[in-house]
């Protein structure tokens, strides 16, 4: 009898991040251990591969900046803890970089399944390059997916974290290519009355629905 593939819903922005517990290079960890801080959960296809190695080096490089922003990192692939340990030790030996975050061993693909990290059209067994940005309330706030052939851009990941934190802190949105320190977008008014007021509120407006302001 043909076995039907299991169909799981993909995670969605604004939903609670799917809970998990798993073995990592730093021992047994659960999603709830990361509450009260931001978390970047990211998957890579396989240990001991060149693109993934460049990414681990790049994540290690931004780790301090992320930590200062209140963000923890957790890597993941379907490799075993032993393979992960061997790989991070190899990175330290060959590149003199200590990997300052845990790596989850998802050999049974449970977490990958929960988060939709496997793209069967690309690989039926390995996880793609997924990035899940989870807030301190453990809600999924952003998801970025890259194909196996393309290493991630750390500047963009940092930019998204800073944009989300700016949104939460100031109740604003951020325009295309926004960088910290630049003007932000004031949420559009919801009523005609508010639209009439908007142009008199001292914002830099193109029209009633398109106003920007500087953050203090």
């Amino acid at each position: 009898m043909d076995e039907k593939p299991e169909i799981r819903p993909m995670p969605r922005i604004g939903d609670p991040a799917p809970a998990f517990e798993a073995e990592t290079t730093w021992g047994h960890l659960a999603l709830e251990d990361f509450k009260d801080r931001w978390l970047i959960l990211f998957s890579h296809p396989a240990d001991f591969t060149p693109v993934c190695t460049t990414e681990f080096l790049a994540f290690a490089e931004i780790h301090k900046e992320l930590k200062d922003l209140g963000v923890d990192l957790l890597g993941l692939s379907v490799d075993s803890v032993t393979a992960h340990i061997a790989w991070v030790r190899n990175i330290e030996e060959k590149f003199q970089v200590k990997i300052p975050f845990p790596v989850l061993a998802d050999s049974d693909r449970k977490v990958a399944g929960l988060y939709g990290m496997i793209m069967p059209g690309e690989s039926k067994t390995e996880t793609s390059r997924c990035v899940f940005i989870i807030d301190p309330r453990q809600m999924l706030r952003a998801m970025i997916y890259y194909p196996m052939s393309t290493g991630r851009n750390m500047a963009e990941i940092l930019r998204v974290v800073k944009a989300l934190q700016t949104t939460d802190q100031h109740g604003v949105a951020t325009p295309a290519n926004w960088q910290p320190g630049e003007m932000v977008i004031v949420p559009p008014p919801r009523t005609v009355e508010a639209a009439e007021q908007r142009l008199q509120q001292g914002f830099e407006c193109v029209d009633w629905y398109f106003c920007k302001k500087k953050l203090q």
Binding site: H28, A30, K35
Partner: peptide
């Protein structure tokens, strides 16, 4: 230590 490590340790 990272807060998540302390929380996991405390569970243990």
């Amino acid at each position: 230590l990272d807060l998540f490590m302390v929380r996991a340790a405390m569970r243990e």
